[in-house]
Simulated assay, not measured.
Amino acid sequence: MPKDVNPDDRAVGRRIYAARKRKGMSQDEATRALTLPDGAMSLFERGMRSVPAPILGRIADLFDADLSYLVTGTAGRSEITPTERDLIRRYRKLSPESRIALYRISETMEVRA
């Protein structure tokens, strides 16, 4: 590891890399989605540059990753799984009527469980 790489930045970068790969995005796609300068994602992932907090939050949102995990390597209190996060994202896109219908379905499923 080069002398100028902070081990904490390197660890954050590895977690960002893993989250991006899980999401199935290339560095270029992530860079465009986050409106970052060319090469910024590479610098972050390799730990060559510290990720500013506002950008780290946007990265977590884009990759559906736990912000606490990206920073510390341990899950935050919410411990929402990627699948649960995806369900929430999809739910938020539903019309009010569809949300009510889905709620009723979940009540029925809960009774059966």
Score class of each variant (00 low, 15 high):
residue 75 A to R: 15
residue 76 G to D: 05
residue 14 R to W: 01
residue 19 A to C: 13
residue 39 G to M: 07
residue 19 A to P: 09
residue 1 M to N: 01
residue 54 P to A: 02
residue 113 A to Y: 09
residue 11 A to F: 04
residue 99 R to L: 00
residue 66 D to I: 05
residue 52 P to A: 09
residue 103 Y to F: 05
residue 99 R to I: 00
residue 61 D to T: 14
residue 87 L to K: 06
residue 96 P to G: 12
residue 90 R to N: 13
residue 1 M to L: 08
residue 19 A to Q: 09
residue 95 S to H: 11
residue 113 A to C: 09
residue 112 R to C: 08
residue 26 S to F: 10
residue 76 G to I: 04
residue 55 I to H: 02
residue 86 D to W: 12
residue 15 R to V: 09
residue 30 A to G: 07
residue 100 I to R: 13
residue 75 A to T: 13
residue 31 T to A: 04
residue 96 P to L: 01
residue 49 R to T: 01
residue 4 D to T: 13
residue 76 G to T: 09
residue 102 L to G: 11
residue 107 E to K: 12
residue 60 A to V: 07
residue 76 G to A: 06
residue 106 S to T: 11
residue 86 D to H: 15
residue 4 D to G: 03
residue 104 R to G: 00
residue 44 F to A: 03
residue 28 D to P: 01
residue 90 R to A: 15
residue 56 L to S: 03
residue 7 P to L: 03
residue 60 A to G: 02
residue 31 T to Q: 13
residue 82 P to T: 14
residue 91 Y to V: 12
residue 64 D to Q: 15
residue 42 S to K: 05
residue 89 R to H: 14
residue 77 R to M: 14
residue 24 G to T: 15
residue 41 M to W: 06
residue 44 F to V: 02
residue 88 I to G: 09
residue 33 A to R: 13
residue 2 P to A: 11
residue 103 Y to N: 03
residue 2 P to G: 01
residue 104 R to A: 07
residue 25 M to A: 13
residue 19 A to H: 09
residue 45 E to M: 08
residue 61 D to P: 02
residue 84 E to Y: 07
residue 95 S to T: 15
residue 70 L to C: 02
residue 55 I to L: 11
residue 60 A to P: 09
residue 113 A to H: 14
residue 86 D to F: 13
residue 13 G to W: 04
residue 82 P to S: 12
residue 111 V to F: 03
residue 29 E to A: 14
residue 54 P to R: 03
residue 93 K to P: 02
residue 82 P to F: 14
residue 94 L to V: 10
residue 49 R to N: 02
residue 99 R to T: 04
residue 37 P to R: 11
residue 13 G to D: 06
residue 15 R to A: 11
residue 40 A to I: 02
residue 98 S to I: 00
residue 65 A to G: 07
residue 31 T to F: 05
residue 38 D to L: 06
residue 82 P to M: 10
residue 85 R to E: 00
residue 66 D to R: 08
residue 71 V to D: 00
